[in-house]
Each structure stands twice: as structure tokens, then as C-alpha cells.
Design a binder for these strands. Structure first.
Length: 911
DNA sequence: TCTCAAACCTAG
DNA sequence: TAAGCTAGGTTTGAGA
């Protein structure tokens, strides 16, 4: 029988561990496979007589089953030979943490290794099985299920890996609870009952795609509504449905921080007074439970995967707010039904439309959570990450990159006879954090500020991974500077030294090579894939490979990593900085100009004499950040090309030529790539620019405006700013229409200045700013507008928004600091409070737009011109002139006069 | 008026 | 069993 590994753990049978693999088989049954015989162990290195030390340990700890002297490499640093170590095998997995400290303290013991590897991971790593990987249980003998809640239970010691791309048909279930708050505030489990629970299923459960449990008799509701008089009966049914449906994935919105803890606490409260609820949810019949780990709640259910959609969406989408309402609207274009907390009691007490609306509202929330998970394919990426890294799905979903990188490295270390470090203690990681102050990052080239035409975007494909591969940068190759002959080492600009690959090929470079290779292969398969499901899996796989490739650098400088090497991290970035500087030099100086002739690009010495039809292109680097360069293509005389003199195809020719020349000068597999051609680029500052970009696709060029770092993409600016600025950027980049921009801004400024709350309702909505409430109020050293609002809300409702939430606010009219005048938009609406239009004009609208239009000599006075004050100069000019202005600014790169004098201004447009 | 640190959010 | 990394711009309020 073949099945896909969803989850793994172990239990004790006759005081011996038996691993349990939970999964779903190819015929759709849920499976639990028991695997006996795997033993826990760890390593230690010591000075002196290892055999004797082994004896001592064996005698001192009766939980030690076996001791063996083995040869292993240490985790960090190049070593010519392995050294003897002790491998300590215990009877029970929990013995390892029980005895490790005492063992570590014994005389002669230098270091202990792998004492903090979870047994289930130890099993997966040693056996080569992967999270969401397929295995075959050969001699599968059916066993009694006992407490196991799955279709099929088998026992097998002969498991083999199965190569299969497709995923098994998983069963998804979303749920959501409704509680009746005591006083309209936040419900608390000790007093507020759970009055409804809703479910959504995929596939359907007994023909139902949704179910709502209601603690009340309601008439005229759909047939998916079940009614109860006792809360405990409702809750028992809740658990019964879960175990009967037997979902693989349990989801919901904010369930980790709210629903699950609430249910657990509520069940405890009810059971204390003898309700006798059995909250069984696990495939091993375990009860629902949660653990608080430093203000974060962790939920895990044996045999299943718990996926809270909220954190996943937070991670994946940049939104101003993450309420279910907003997220559904933005990402699904679906409306949440709503019953305000304050109206819940009233709806609940009703026996007609209102209670039915309340039921519908509850049902919709589960539906939306499930839709978010499925329609946005939130899980695809994590399933792929599991299959590539080997980590169990629950751990890829709720853990970080560390998990996966360490799992991969430990697997490789194991194969090469190298032991893995334990996690660093707090002291060590604090020390490393201090050291990291010397960790330098990527280089950002000073932008040639202003508007440029015909810019080619080149970037390095996976820069940091390829640097590590090309230079054999690894924990296993790093050596103490000066300790090896020059000929044997690679030295980075940061003075890190690593042995050359012919002496020892690093584990990290090998892993990266494999991942990169897999990614290329996966992309090839994608081109051939005809089945949509298969394409989806492959696409997720290549994305997962990309994520993993890019995780290794960050991990190497992570203070809490098992493997940490500042020397390695600094070498990666120093080579990167060197590289981009070299690239700039090659482009500007060694190449300098490119000749376009007969649809091909030539270097000047390749081209020979310049003929009639030749186009000479002068190159310069206008900007670059870490792994990219923007190459400005100009005429030989340093002027911009005329409109039809330089085509997108010309850009591509030049771009590909430059990329190939630079790539040829680089060690394999580093590669500079032509990414796109920009017709116009506006460089405002480092990390702030806008491009009118043309990307090559299978059917021609696809154009778009790409904005980086400017206010349009920043969530702490109001929508009005974004909308205004995006329009201005479009006008400038596409039409070259400065006047139009000025007009547009003036018009908006006017509307805001004379804001009519009734007439300009659309604008009022766009005046809301949001900021992230990121830490406890007491740890803020300065006042913050959103903090003012948090305090206001807490004072009024008794409920404080939780840390991590984005808080919306507007600035209201009045005296004093802005911070003190920040207010909850809802409260402002309800109480008809006046907004500070001047703040919006002076602080939200004018500064961002001035930074852009300032390039063309437009200043605040021009933009803030009051339409009611007649008599100031008229701003109309013909369209050719507008374009001319842009052209002129591009061509000469001049900084037009900043004077606000009317004549100066018009003369600029008189050009 | 200028300088500084805190806070936020983004680029890569 | 909490957590990949650094570089950088901008706003704000406080204080010299």
C-alpha cells in the first residue's frame, strides 16, 4: 500500500518507541502505519579514553542501551580526517534530554551533538523519508486500530520511498465559533458560552459542504443547521463531526489565536461542572489542546495538519488590513456577512430574520476561510516545501526557514558522517548577535536621480546561492585564515578562507547545486505538463526550490542557527559587493559602447568600422541594488535616443549582449540575465524608483508600471496618496505629461481642501492610514498615531487590538501634535468629526508628489495653487510641448530651476 | 533651525 | 518548539 506522509510521531509499546506515520493512501483512505525498531541516539566528543568513558556512561545511566565508538566529522570547519566519537543509544527518546546535561558535564566530555533532534525527525532523516513524500508499506499487516481514528492501521518495518509527483486527495475542513460576549466586549471562556460552530468541507461531508451547529431552536433555516439546547451537546457534536469527517487539514481564520484556545478553555470550564465533554480530535484520539509559547499559540493535532489562514495570508499578501472582511474582499472579491459584536445579543435573542442572518453569518465565515485556503492555493507552496526539504507539513506551515535548512543539512551531514550541532543557548546567540554587527550586506549603487529613457534591467540569477556554489563557501570548507597554503584556498574580499572544491566540496554548495538543478528540471517539466493539477504541483515545487535556495545565506548569519558562520555570511555578501562593482566597471568601462548592426549587438572591436546603418549605443549604469544593474542606453553623443531610434528589440539585443559578456567573465554558475527593458525610468533615491517596463514574453512585449519603495507601495500612507501618485507616475512615464500631472494634483488638492463629506465620500475613504501595532504599548519610547487610536479603542470598548494587527486611523482637525489627533475612522464617521484637511494636503499629498515632479522643476507652490484664487498663470500647453519637457529633462539631466516665479515656470514649458 | 533617535516599512 | 539576513528612506517629535 502506498501513502503520503502527512504527520509523524511515536508512542511507547512495551517501553520501546514505535514510530507512527499518518497519511492518506492513493485510494483515498486515511492510514496510520506503525514502524517499530527505530532507536534514539546522540553523539559526543571527548578527550582521553573513549572506550572507558563509554563504559562509565553505560554504568551510570541505565537508560543507555548501547555505546559505540564511531568516527565522525565535527559540524563546522574543514577537517582532513574524522575523529572518534561516542554514539550513545538510549531505550526511549525522552531519555536523551533527560541525561544529556549530566553527560555533557562528565570529565573529558568536550561536546555533545544531536541531543535535541525530535525523534520523529530523527526517524525521517535517517530513513530518508520526507514530509508529504510517498512511501510504500510492503509487508503491511493490518493491526487492531485501538485508539487510532483512521480508515486503516498497518504495521510495517519494511517501508520504501515511492517516487510520485501527484498529491493524494486531501480532506479539508474549516471551522469557526461564535460566542456571546457578556457585555458587548470580548467574550471570555469562563462566562461566555459558545453558541454556534460552523464548518465548511471539501470534499463534502455526507452531502453537506457546510454545517452550522446552533445552541437554540431556529425555524426556517437550511438543512445544514443542527440545533441543540445544551452547549455541551453542541460541543460533543463538534468533536464528533471532526472525528467522523476525518480531515487531513483543519483550517479557519485566526483559529490559533482565538477559536482553538477558546474551545479548549470553554470545554475545561464546562467539564469542571461535570459536562463530560470529550474533546477528541487527533487521529490517535488525543484531545484538542494548545500551547502558549511566548504570546504565540501553537496548535497541533496528531495525524492532521492545522493551518490558520491568517498568518499565511499575512505572509503572502501585502494588505492594509487583515480582517476576514477585508481579506475576503481584496483577495476573493467576496463579502463577509456581518453582525457587529454589539448587535450579537439582539440577533441571538431574535426568532426571525435576525437569528437566521446570524446563522448565515457564522456559516459564511467558515466558507470564506476554506475558500481562502483553496482558491488562493495557500497550502501548495508548503506542501512543496515539505516534499523538497523533508520537513513535516505542520512544521513547514508553522515554522520558519530554519527548520527546513537544518533538516536538509542534517540529512546531508548524516550521509557524510558529520554530526550536527545542538541549538545554541541564549548566551551563545546573544554573543553571535553582537558579532553580527560586523555582518555587512549588499551594495546599493548611488542612483543617477531623475528621469531616464531606454534603460535595460539586468540581474543576477540567484546571486547569493551561486556565489556560494562558485566559491565553495560552506561550514564544511571554512578554515582559519592563514592556516592553509594559498594554493589550497579561496579567499573572499572579507578575508574569509575556504578550501577549494578539489580538496573538499562543501555540503552547502552541493545542496544548492542539487536544488538549482532540480529547479531547472522542474521548470522544464512545467513546459511539458498538460494536466492542470500536475502543472500546479510543479509550479509550487519550483517556487519552493527558489525559497530554499535563498534561505541558506540568511541562515548562515542567523544567531540561533545550529550552524552559524559569520565568516561565511560575510564572504557571501562581500563577494556580492565586489561583483556588482565589477559588473558596473565592465558595463561602463570595458564594454562602454555597443554597436547594433543587422539585428545583432557587437562590441566596438568586434564591429570594426562604423557604417551607415549601425547604431552606436553608449552604456552607463544608472542604478543597482545588490544583484541588479540598470543600464542606461544613450546615443554616442551622450544624448537620449529620439522616440523611434531605439526599440525594445534594440534593448534586448544590447541587454543580452552585455549579460553574456559579463556572465562569461564569471565563475560558474554565476549568471547575469537580461530581465526587462524600461522605456522610461524615474530614479528618486536608493530603493525608490518607478519604471515603465517591458518584459519579453512568449507573445511579445508586456508593459507595466513597476513602482518600488515609493509611497504607492507603502501601507503607512493613505490610499489618496497612492492613487494620486500612481496617476502622476503614469502620466510622467507613459505620456511625459507634466502639465497633466500638475493639473491632476491641483484638482485633488482642491477637492481635499474643500472637502465635502457627503459629496466626496470616496475621498474620505481614501484618507485612512494604517500602521502596524507591533509591540506592547509600554515598550514604545515615542508617541505614535496608531498607538493613540489603540488607547482610544481600549478605553471605549474595553478591548485592546492585539499586537501584530494593523491599526487604521485618520488625522482629525484641531490644535497640537498630529499624534494626539489620530482617531479611529469608524468613530470619526459615527460622530461626524472633522478631518484635518491641511494635514492631508501638506503631509500626505504634497511631499511625495513634489519629490517626483521636483525633477521637472515643479514645486509645492505650483501644486498647492488654489483654484479659487483667480489670476495666477494658466497651466495649459500643447501635448508636444509636454513631451518636449520630459525629453529635455532626460537629455540634459538638468535640475530645472526651483524658483516658483511664474515666468521661470512658464518659460520651462515654453521650450 | 538643526540634529537625532525611534518607528515604520520597504528593496533585495 | 519563536524568530533567515542587511541597506535604506521618510516622518515625527524632542531637545540643543
Amino acid at each position: 500500500m502506498n501513502f503520503q506522509i502527512l504527520d509523524a510521531d511515536y508512542f511507547r509499546e512495551n517501553e520501546r518507541p514505535v514510530v507512527r506515520l499518518f497519511g492518506r493512501s492513493d485510494n483515498g483512505e486515511s492510514v496510520c502505519c506503525l514502524v517499530p525498531g527505530f532507536e534514539p541516539y546522540f553523539y559526543l566528543s571527548a578527550s582521553g579514553d573513549l572506550k572507558k568513558l563509554g563504559q562509565e556512561i553505560k554504568e551510570r545511566f541505565d537508560v543507555v542501551k548501547d555505546i559505540e565508538v564511531v568516527e565522525r566529522f565535527e559540524p563546522i570547519g574543514y577537517q582532513e580526517t574524522k575523529q572518534p566519537m561516542l554514539k550513545v543509544t538510549t531505550f526511549d527518546p525522552r531519555n536523551v534530554p533527560e541525561i544529556r546535561d549530566e553527560v555533557a558535564g562528565m570529565i573529558g566530555v568536550r561536546e555533545i551533538y544531536e541531543t535535541d533532534i525530535l525523534f520523529r525527525n530523527r526517524f525521517l532523516i535517517d530513513k530518508g523519508f520526507k514530509g508529504m513524500g510517498w512511501v510504500s508499506a510492503e509487508d503491511d499487516a493490518d493491526v487492531a486500530k485501538g485508539d487510532l481514528l483512521c480508515d486503516h492501521a498497518v504495521r510495517s518495518s519494511e517501508l520504501t520511498e515511492v517516487d510520485r509527483i501527484a498529491n493524494s486527495p486531501l480532506k479539508y475542513m474549516a471551522f469557526d465559533i461564535e460566542c456571546l460576549p457578556h457585555d458587548g466586549g470580548m467574550p471570555t471562556p469562563d462566562v461566555s458560552p459558545i453558541i454556534m460552530v460552523s464548518f465548511a468541507f471539501e470534499p463534502a461531508y455526507n452531502g453537506h459542504s457546510t454545517i452550522v451547529l446552533v445552541k437554540k431552536e431556529v425555524e426556517g433555516v437550511d438543512d445544514d443547521v443542527e440545533m441543540f439546547t445544551k452547549e455541551s451537546d453542541l460541543l460533543n457534536r463538534f468533536f464528533e463531526i471532526i472525528t467522523e469527517y476525518d480531515p487531513d487539514v483543519i483550517t479557519g481564520y485566526n483559529i490559533n489565536d482565538f477559536d482553538v484556545p477558546y474551545i479548549v478553555d470553554r470545554v475545561n470550564v464546562l467539564n469542571e461542572s461535570g459536562a463530560g465533554i470529550k474533546p477528541i480530535v487527533g487521529r490517535d484520539s488525543r484531545n484538542l489542546s494548545y500551547r502558549k509559547i511566548i504570546s504565540r499559540t501553537m496548535v497541533s493535532i496528531p495525524g492532521r495538519v492545522v493551518v490558520d489562514a491568517l498568518p499565511l495570508i499575512r505572509q503572502q499578501f501585502s494588505l492594509k488590513r487583515y480582517t476576514l472582511r477585508n481579506v475576503s474582499k481584496e483577495l476573493l472579491d467576496r463579502e463577509k456577512l456581518d453582525v457587529a459584536p454589539a448587535d450579537m445579543q439582539e440577533h441571538w435573542n431574535d426568532n426571525g430574520e435576525k437569528i437566521r442572518k446570524f446563522v448565515d453569518y457564522a456559516r459564511r465565515d467558515s466558507e470564506l476561510a476554506l475558500e481562502l485556503l483553496l482558491e488562493l492555493k495557500l497550502l501548495d507552496k508548503y506542501i512543496a516545501l515539505s516534499r523538497v526539504s523533508g520537513v513535516l507539513l505542520q512544521d513547514t506551515v508553522s515554522g520558519g526557514q530554519t527548520n527546513m535548512v537544518e533538516h536538509i543539512l542534517m540529512t546531508e551531514f548524516g550521509k557524510q558522517g558529520r554530526v550536527m550541532s545542538t541549538k545554541p543557548d541564549d548566551e551563545t546567540s546573544a554573543y553571535r548577535r553582537k558579532q553580527n554587527e560586523s555582518l555587512k550586506g549588499g551594495a546599493v549603487l548611488e542612483p543617477e536621480k531623475g528621469l531616464h529613457e531606454n534603460v535595460i534591467v539586468l540581474d543576477y540569477k540567484s546571486l547569493y546561492p551561486t556565489i556560494m556554489m562558485a566559491h565553495n563557501l560552506c561550514y564544511t570548507t571554512v578554515v582559519k585564515p592563514g592556516s592553509y597554503p594559498e594554493d589550497d584556498i579561496i579567499r573572499s574580499p572579507s578575508k574569509g578562507e575556504f578550501v577549494k572544491p578539489d580538496i573538499f566540496k562543501g555540503v552547502v554548495p552541493s545542496v544548492l547545486e542539487y536544488l538549482l538543478d532540480q529547479r531547472v528540471k522542474t521548470k522544464q517539466l512545467m513546459k511539458k505538463a498538460d494536466d492542470e493539477g500536475e502543472y500546479r504541483v510543479l509550479d509550487a515545487t519550483q517556487l519552493a526550490l527558489k525559497i530554499l535556495l535563498n534561505s541558506f545565506y540568511g541562515y548562515s548569519g542567523y544567531a540561533r542557527a545550529r550552524l552559524y558562520s559569520l565568516q561565511m555570511a560575510n564572504s557571501v555578501t562581500s563577494i556580492g559587493r565586489d561583483n556588482i562593482a565589477r559588473t558596473e566597471d565592465i558595463v561602463c568601462n570595458r564594454i562602454g559602447t555597443v554597436v547594433l548592426r543587422d539585428n545583432a549587438a557587437y562590441l566596438t572591436d568586434e564591429a570594426g568600422d562604423i557604417g551607415e546603418g549601425d547604431k552606436v549605443v553608449k552604456l552607463s549604469v544608472a542604478y543597482g541594488d545588490t544583484d541588479s544593474v540598470f543600464v542606461h542606453c544613450k546615443k554616442d553623443c551622450d544624448e537620449e535616443f529620439a522616440e523611434d531610434e531605439f526599440s525594445l528589440e534594440d534593448s534586448a539585443l544590447v541587454g543580452r549582449k552585455v549579460a553574456s559578456i559579463v556572465t562569461a567573465s564569471l565563475p560558474d554558475p554565476m549568471e547575469l540575465e537580461f530581465e526587462a527593458a524600461a522605456k522610461r525610468v524615474l530614479l528618486v533615491a536608493k530603493k525608490r524608483y518607478a519604471q515603465w517596463l517591458f518584459e519579453p514574453t512568449n507573445d511579445g512585449w508586456k508593459d507595466k508600471i513597476k513602482v518600488k519603495g515609493l509611497e504607492t507601495v507603502r501601507r503607512d500612507w493613505c490610499e489618496l496618496t497612492s492613487k494620486m501618485l500612481i496617476r502622476v507616475l503614469e502620466l510622467v512615464l507613459k505620456e511625459g505629461d507634466i502639465d497633466g500631472s500638475v493639473h491632476h494634483v491641483r484638482e485633488l488638492v482642491d477637492r481635499v481642501r474643500n472637502l465635502d463629506v457627503q459629496k466626496d465620500a470616496d475621498i474620505v475613504e481614501d484618507l485612512v492610514l494604517t500602521k502596524s501595532f507591533s509591540k506592547s504599548p509600554s515598550s514604545y519610547k515615542n508617541k505614535q498615531p496608531h498607538l493613540t487610536v489603540v488607547e482610544n479603542i481600549e478605553r471605549r470598548t474595553g478591548v485592546r487590538p492585539s499586537i501584530g494587527e494593523r491599526i487604521p486611523f485618520v488625522i482629525t482637525a484641531g490644535k497640537g501634535l498630529f499624534v494626539d489627533r489620530a482617531e479611529d475612522p469608524e468613530y470619526v464617521r459615527e460622530h461626524n468629526i472633522t478631518l484635518d484637511v491641511d494635514y492631508y494636503i501638506q503631509k500626505q499629498m504634497l511631499p511625495p508628489v513634489e519629490r517626483i515632479l521636483g525633477v521637472f522643476g515643479v514645486d509645492v507652490a505650483t501644486l498647492n495653487h488654489d483654484s479659487k484664487q483667480k489670476g495666477l498663470f494658466d497651466f495649459d500647453t500643447s501635448s508636444e510641448e509636454k513631451v518636449e519637457t520630459v525629453k529635455r529633462v532626460c537629455r540634459t539631466g538638468e535640475q530645472p530651476s526651483q524658483q516658483q516665479d511664474q515666468k521661470t515656470q512658464s518659460s520651462l514649458f515654453d521650450f
